[in-house]
Design a protein around this nucleic acid. Structure first.
Lengths: 190, 190
DNA sequence: CTAATATGTCAACGAAGCTGACCAAAGACG
DNA sequence: CGTCTTTGGTCAGCTTCGTTGACATATTAG
């Protein structure tokens, strides 16, 4: 259990045993994590949400654009598995995206029941616009925090995911052969 | 062109210079961040969501319990500012919580228009139950990632918040005077 | 031919946001 | 005192995005 949280560990007063004290610190630590995730996630999505609202779309549309953009030719079934929603829910978002020309459906070559999904140019343009907005935001946070913090952020977020999501992530983010794996190995705290 | 399936993802040829490559890496970095936040946040909230569903409640109830628990005696207005929602939306969640005995409202002593919100024992018990579920999950991620990563996670999440959220966080999480500020200074990359 | 699979669609519902309008109690201040 | 503002509550209606259940169709698999 090596995880005395770096510097802040103190807490001298309070007539408690050491174990009790650790427990208390853990509690506050976790409450902080709850706050950070709530506020952070909310503000992280705020930028794209504003753009989408102008187009009469919502966050769900963004997610479809994002994952279709990440894996062009993805099947409906795979997309459902990644998003973890029902096909009815997906349909309400995907159908308009197809009708308005953001996404194309083409029958699978080996299995013609499948509808392989790909972004159109219009879809790519919108996705990129949403992406850029978010990029500014995240890059600012990354810059302020520094590369070591970014690596830590990634490790913790990965740990917050369930095993299925982790597997999906590895598929959704095919490591670019030119750049090597994103997390080659922690390399002992950079 | 529309129908090249997933194999097309790479695009290895692409004649790029070093700057272009950096840009590309940044892009992939950011896409990864999007994935991590989506999956991570979703799975982070999954545990409490399941408990709440059994009680006919949702995530919004949890947030109220969380922030009221964090600042007993908080006013309705303050809670609205923290959550960033309208009073109508809050009402739909808060009224049932009061009616079912999870939260009490008491008139403010200096301003009797205010309704100071506090958790009842029942409310504290539920909040704790939700908290414990989430704690297990987060502690696992923290342990796996290690203390340096946790510090980095906190720094990045904080950076993802807007300035208002940051101010609210400092109020919502009154820094324990015994332990000093959470982020005293980067201390040059652990 | 039959069964399973991939996808789509209709209908109804629930959770949690929103706007706009309006009201009452209490404080603030001339 | 009287008026204005602030705090909070409420009614009505709308939107997004998730859910279940049932059913239809095309295609593949055995």
């Amino acid at each position: 259990m090596p995880d005395t949280p770096d510097a802040k560990a103190a807490g001298e007063a309070k007539p408690v045993g050491a174990g009790r004290q650790l427990l208390f610190l853990r509690e506050e630590e976790l409450r902080l994590a709850q706050d950070l995730l709530f506020f952070g996630y909310r503000d992280f999505t705020a930028g794209p949400d504003a753009i989408l609202a102008e187009l009469g779309m919502g966050r769900a549309h963004h997610r479809v654009l994002h994952f279709v953009g990440r894996r062009p030719g993805i099947t409906v079934g795979e997309l459902l598995a990644i998003l973890g929603i029902t096909k009815q829910s997906l349909g309400r978002v995907l159908t308009p995206l197809v009708e308005e020309g953001y996404v194309t459906q083409t029958p699978g070559r080996s299995d013609r029941r499948q509808r392989l999904l790909t972004l159109t140019e219009k879809g790519e343009a919108l996705e990129r616009r949403l992406f850029e907005r978010q990029r500014e935001w995240v890059m600012r946070a990354y810059r302020e925090a520094g590369p070591v913090a970014v690596e830590g952020f990634r490790r913790v977020m990965r740990g917050l995911m369930g095993p299925e999501a982790r597997a999906q992530l590895d598929r959704a983010a095919p490591p670019d052969p030119r750049s090597g794996p994103i997390h080659p190995k922690p390399r002992s705290a950079a």
